[in-house]
Design a protein around this nucleic acid. Sequence first.
DNA 1: ATCTATTCCTGGCTGC
DNA 2: TGCAGCCAGGAATAGA
Length: 255
Amino acid sequence: MPELPEVETIVRSLAPRLRGRRVVSAEYLAPRALRGTAEPPIIGHEVREVTRHGKFILLRFDHGALAIHLGMTGKLLIDGEATPYLRAEIVFDKCRLLFDDIRQFGKMAWSTKLPGGPEPFDIDGATFAKMLRARRGVVKPLLLNQGFVRGLGNIYVDEALFRAGIDPRALACNVSVARAVKLHGHIVEVLREAIERGGSSISDYVDADGQRGGFQEAHRVYGREGEPCVVCGRRVLRIVLGQRGTHYCAFCQRR
DNA sequence: ATCTATTCCTGGCTGC
DNA sequence: TGCAGCCAGGAATAGA
C-alpha cells in the first residue's frame, strides 16, 4: 500500500527516467483508471519534472500535470512486463510507463486540483501541535485524513503513534503540546527512515524498477499483532478503529 | 465539524 | 483438492 515513503521512492526512481521524455502515445485500458475524466492531452509533450504531492505522483508538463494515485495495489513500472492488470500504458520516446493495478483503486487525472493539508515536512512541531489540538476527533483517523496532513497511511500512522507513545484512540484535543510536538518529530522521523529504506513492501508494493522496499522489517507494531512489543515485551494488540486495522501496545501507548 | 457505514476490487487466506 | 466466504484498505460518498 503506497503511502508517502513508497510514493517518494517511486518518484525518485521515475524522475531521472522520465524527465525530458516526450510522450509518443498513450492507451488507457481500463475506463476506471481515468474515472470518466478526459484523456490527458499529453501526446507530443515533454515531461519537465516528476514530483510528489502527498500520495499523488505528478508528471509535470508545461501546460499542466498528470496526477496519479496508486490506491492500494497500483504500480508504475518503467519498461516492465505487461500483466493482466495493466490499466494504462504511456509510451515515451525512449521508454514506456506501465500503470498496473490489481484492485483498481488507483486513478489518474489531468491537472486536477490537488487536495490536502500540508506535508508533515513543511510544518514545524509547534504548528502541528496547534493544528492537532484544534481538532475534536480521535487522533488516528485524523492523521489518516489527507486534508489534515498529506501522505500518511495506515502503516506510518500506527508506527508514528507507537514511537510517540500515544494511544491511537486518544482525542486530538487531549494530546498535550509537548506530546504533539514529539508526535510530529516521530512522523517526520519514521517517514524519513522509510524513504531511506525504499518504503515498506507488505504485499504488492514495488518501485518503478520493480524493486521491493525494506522498511517492513523495521515495523514495530504494524503487522505484528501478538508479537512482543519491542520496548516492553507485552503483546502487540490489534483493534479496528475507523474501519482500519490498528496495531499498538497498550502499555507503551497512553491516551 | 465529525461520526458511521458503504462502495469500489481481487488475491490470498481460512475453514470445512 | 475444491470451494465458499471473508479479509485487506485509500478515499469518495451518503447520511446522521
